[in-house]
Structures are given as C-alpha cells and as structure tokens.
C-alpha cells in the first residue's frame, strides 16, 4: 500500500481550532486509512480531536498530512479541500 504525503498551509481564519478541528477530525474519520498530521516536530493522529488541537495550527501555519491505506487518495483530496477553504 502506498503512503502519500502532502504539505498544506492553513487558510482558515481561526486556524485548526475547536470547530474547524472537529470538522477536520470528522472528515478524517470517514476513511479507513491511517492519517497522521505533522506540524514542526509534533505528529498526531488526524482522527483525534485532542491531537489536532494540541498542534495549535493557526492561520498560515504549515502542516504535513501523511496518509497510508486503501482510500488514501480520496482522504487526501477531501482534507486538502477542507484545509484550503478560508471559511467553514
């Protein structure tokens, strides 16, 4: 199974805080693939609200999404679309 990685910049005004973070997690949980999110040295599960929150990913910060699994490509597309939206 292939592992894909993608660097993204947070466009949302509030960053990946509370509501956006929970939406992100809800999207991630739709897929069976293993999803990790990295910011700096920190790496957390993309399916964990607490993990995502602890990243403190504000607007403009760079994150790397790593996905491994059968629906990796679809998951990436979905998450990419969400992260690059400036409103949610």
């Amino acid at each position: 199974m292939s592992k894909i990685k993608k660097k993204l910049v947070i466009k949302n005004k509030q960053g990946l805080h509370a509501r956006p973070a929970s939406l992100f997690v809800q999207i991630a949980n739709k897929y069976v693939s293993n999803i990790k999110v990295k910011k700096g040295k920190q790496k957390v599960s993309g399916k964990s609200i607490m993990g995502i929150l602890t990243l403190e990913a504000n607007k403009g910060s760079e994150i790397i999404i790593e996905i491994e699994g059968e629906d990796a490509h679809e998951a990436l597309e979905d998450l990419k679309k969400f992260v690059s939206k400036s409103k949610c």
Binding site: S22, N29, K47, S48, M50, G51
Partner: peptide, 11 residues
C-alpha cells in the same frame, strides 16, 4: 466539545 473528547479515537 465534551462528546468529541469522549469519542476521541487516539485517546
């Protein structure tokens, strides 16, 4: 928010 924490997969 409480429910989300409760359902947190990582945890």
């Amino acid at each position: 928010a409480h429910l989300l924490f409760l359902e947190d997969r990582s945890l």
